[in-house]
């Protein structure tokens, strides 16, 4: 009888019991780092045994020392901050434009007919191919980097937002109409949440392109930032600093992805695919 009562909703009000699963979670968290760690150890062993020349590739210890010396005079922190700010500004501008265009073209036939073809055409141009033109337009100041980064992140966010909006269940939209939802409600309660999984895919693509664009534009023309740091070090044959810059890019890239993922899990907790 108990199970019948539970199904009928008469007895159960408390929360469901959760099993203790910490040890397994720890293992799951640590396992992905095993391969990078092993590679670093191999690399160090290779350098220590003289198999890898210092000129070609500095040892992990040398890179760590470079980290300390760069960090000590504050230039590393400054460069990371400058690069991070550029990346975020580009993401904010390009991402907003891509998002708004994606929503507009997903919702409005007129807007789609007006702009989609143009966007698809511009999309096929590799945005880094515009560097010469961009330098002519903006010189080598912040605007050039901002423009390139914005342009780079715009398209993955546009495409995935558009795709997400177009793929929202028509039945749900019909339901919303019958229940008298205003256009704003229909957007905020049905279309946007329905498109969100796809928008996050776009965001994660965009984050990759964001770093890529920044590295390239900072190596070409900049007086600060990690790309500048690496390029500057190249001129003085400081391979350890060059490698350090690469490591920092990897860490920043991973960090951005982790943030995007946790945002995804938090906002999509209704979706079984994102439940933990």
């Amino acid at each position: 009888m108990t199970s019948i009562d539970i199904e009928a909703g008469r007895t159960v009000t408390g929360s469901k019991p959760r099993s203790l699963r910490l040890p397994r979670l720890d293992r799951e968290r640590l396992l992905p780092f095993a391969v990078p760690l092993a590679l670093v150890l191999l690399w160090q062993a290779g350098s220590s045994l003289g198999l890898i020349s210092d000129r070609v590739m500095p040892s992990p210890v040398a890179v760590t020392q470079a980290f300390w010396s760069e960090a000590a005079d504050g230039s590393l922190g400054h460069n990371i901050l400058v690069s991070g700010a550029r990346a975020l500004a580009g993401l904010a501008i390009g991402g907003s434009i891509g998002f708004l265009l994606g929503i507009a073209n997903g919702v409005s036939k007129l807007s789609e007919q007006l702009t989609d073809t143009t966007l698809q055409m511009i999309r096929t141009i590799p945005h880094l191919a515009m560097i010469p033109l961009v330098i002519l337009w903006f010189g080598i100041g912040e605007e050039a980097k901002l423009f390139l980064t914005s342009l780079g992140v715009l398209f993955p966010i546009y495409l995935n937002t558009y795709h997400g909006v177009r793929n929202v269940d028509r039945g749900l939209i019909e339901m919303g109409r019958i229940y008298g939802m205003s256009n704003w409600s229909l957007f905020s309660k049905v279309i946007f949440p329905g498109a969100l999984p796809s928008i996050f895919v776009g965001l994660r693509y965009a984050l990759g392109i964001m770093w890529l664009t920044l590295i390239v534009s900072e190596s070409i023309a900049a007086s600060s930032g990690i790309g500048y740091m690496a390029n500057n070090a190249r001129e003085f044959m400081m391979t350890d600093v060059v490698v350090l810059a690469l490591v920092i890019y990897a860490v920043l890239g991973k960090l951005a992805d982790v943030i995007a993922r946790s945002l995804e899990r938090w906002t999509l907790s209704w979706n079984a695919a994102y439940q933990r």
């Binding site: 039945g171 339901m175 229940y179 939802m181 409600s185 309660k189 949440p193 969100l196 209704w270 979706n271």
Partner: peptide, 24 residues
């Protein structure tokens, strides 16, 4: 109207889905 499929909003919990029926 009730359709063959429930057409609940997957991102709303049960009580907020029912609340949709009250309109704006």
């Amino acid at each position: 109207i009730m359709f063959q499929e429930p057409r609940l909003l997957p991102w709303f919990n049960v009580i907020d889905n029912v609340g949709v029926g009250l309109g704006e």
